[in-house]
Design a binder for these strands. Structure first.
Ligand SMILES: [Zn+2]
Ligand SMILES: [Zn+2]
Ligand SMILES: [Zn+2]
Ligand SMILES: [Zn+2]
Lengths: 138, 138
DNA sequence: ATGGCTGATGATATAACATAACAGCGAGAC
DNA sequence: GTCTCGCTGTTATGTTATATCATCAGCCAT
């Protein structure tokens, strides 16, 4: 463990590191079971191990879950604290993480009705990426 | 069931009616399997039947899926055309449907990056409803 | 009427996603 | 040493969703 470098990354366990690396290498959303397949070579071999690490990483903001896909993706920014959204291509599953400004976030929370005091935003925009858009009709 | 809603309703099949009634009666989100349990008495007895009806109803905008809960809820407005969001109590699962104005919707779509042309918004706000909030009634 | 077409439904089987519960192990405290 | 704690491993099961094929009823052309 390299201690005297001042990177601000929280220290991760072996499994958390494996799974985060896997997601970063993939550079696209992966299901928990797809992750499991990829990390079998490192000794991880059961779903709960994967879900534990994913949940820990999500708590740290380093992994996000795409609710509309039941898939997980490494945070583009190392870690986020809740002010993010996603744009997702419905054809090829390409994902772009969107950073929400404080104003964006406030605007979203302001949509909540009086009965519910909102704490957390889940925002996913689905559409088509450039490569998947029909090349001009003929 | 009293059917004094606006009758712009597209005609529904028997199963679609059963399942929509079930969701409207429940007045809260239900999982597909919870729906299945409730409509067994009407003769529906297998998951695909429920999912077929739910998907048809979602296509018609009369049922929405809460992505963060894997649960389904009847549209509060009879039917919506994509401009809705939800606020959800994380303690009691109470759900409030939010109608998005055209401006809200446009604002949300505008968050998408250039690479992805957004078509559809999934927005869910999680928090605590009044009954579930620590009663700080000073 | 017969038979073929179509859309809705029924049924079986299985895939895909997620968690509960308990067992084992290793590092540091004492 | 041995106790405790956090992490990991393992078994078993629960929950959500779909692929696939069979069946049935209405419709309509012949
Ligand atoms: Zn992030
Ligand atoms: Zn694409
Ligand atoms: Zn609605
Ligand atoms: Zn509540």
């Amino acid at each position: 463990m390299n201690a005297h470098h001042h990177d601000h990354a929280p220290k991760l366990s072996r499994n958390q590191n494996e799974i985060l690396s896997c997601l970063r290498d993939a550079n696209e959303p992966m299901s928990a079971y797809a992750i499991l397949d990829r990390v079998r070579k490192t000794g991880i071999s059961h779903p709960p191990t994967v879900y534990r690490a994913l949940n820990d990483l999500m708590r740290k903001g380093m992994v996000h879950r795409l609710q509309s896909r039941s898939a997980f993706v490494a945070c583009d920014h190392g870690a986020c604290d809740g002010k993010f959204a996603f744009a997702i291509c419905r054809a090829c599953d390409k994902v772009v993480e969107i950073s929400l400004s404080d104003e964006d976030q406030a605007g979203l929370l302001a949509l909540a009705p009086d009965e519910i005091a909102p704490e957390q935003v889940t925002l996913e925009l689905a559409g088509l990426c450039q490569s998947c858009r029909p090349a001009a009709s003929a």
